[in-house]
Write a protein that binds this DNA or RNA. Structure first.
Lengths: 143, 143
DNA sequence: CAGCATCCGTTATGATACTG
DNA sequence: CAGTATCATAACGGATGCTG
């Protein structure tokens, strides 16, 4: 739900029929109350998608992911992996070898989110020419 | 394409068959080269979706949007609208009345992006219980 | 009404060094 | 190997005041 409890505020519903959820006034983007917001935020984060996509081809170890994703720092890799783990999208398994190795893998939930994400990236692929042209036109006009 | 020109870098393709694009090493998230990244960034931005959804029910004026979206500042509303206009997702029409009124509306491109976005928000709706439970479990374990 | 300019605090991200 | 800790910086976002 894109909603926020905001006592005493008038609530007007927008496109509820189309979107399947109500869309009241107040700040509909308050995280912690709005899981849609959470998901959207994750998607927008710099490394989340790259990691999920990397894991789509099977479980990977920490350093393996770091090489696959490219120039991500250990700091951001750790942070993003933790978030994804907390959200239940990936699993983390420690093998007590020496030195230790840790394996990350998509959970069923993590696999399921890749479908709608693929829709979005597919749209981007299909329309990036339109977007590029629109930008050139726009930038040409303002100068 | 989630790619970056990174001269002299070895390029390994990941899941190209599944994702419809190559996914080389280097920093695949460099904006300006990667429209997918662009779109994803927009989606993750705080107000983009709320504005697009608001416009889904028909053209709106500036102050009308500000009321609908809730507590967005004029600054952010202007900024986000400009971006969307530049990307060709919305149109901006100025009516030279006094005082002036400006109407924003979805373009065909803007309408088309709402479909994949609806997929994603729908997924979030369907699975927000799973996510919430995963978080509780995770947070319970680390304390 | 519909902005734009400015200031300023918060958050996101990166670089680097250290550890079990 | 797989992190953690610390520091620095850049991008984001909000508040306010001004203007055609």
């Amino acid at each position: 739900m894109i909603t926020r409890e905001h006592e005493g505020n008038p609530v007007r519903s927008l496109s509820g029929a189309v979107w399947g959820f109500d869309f009241p006034e107040g700040a509909p983007t308050d995280p912690g109350v709005c899981p849609v917001r959470d998901v959207l935020d994750r998607v927008g984060q710099k490394w989340t998608l790259l990691i999920l996509i990397s894991l789509d081809s099977g479980p990977k170890r920490f350093s393996q992911l770091q090489r696959m994703v490219g120039d991500i720092s250990k700091r951001m890799l750790t942070q993003t992996l933790r978030q994804l783990e907390r959200d239940g999208l990936i699993s983390r398994t420690v093998y007590p070898t020496k030195p230790p190795s840790v394996e990350y893998a998509l959970t069923l939930l993590g696999e399921s989110v890749l479908a709608p994400i693929a829709q979005l990236t597919s749209w981007a692929e299909d329309h990036h020419d339109d977007i590029r042209q629109a930008r050139e036109k726009f930038d040409g006009l303002i100068e």
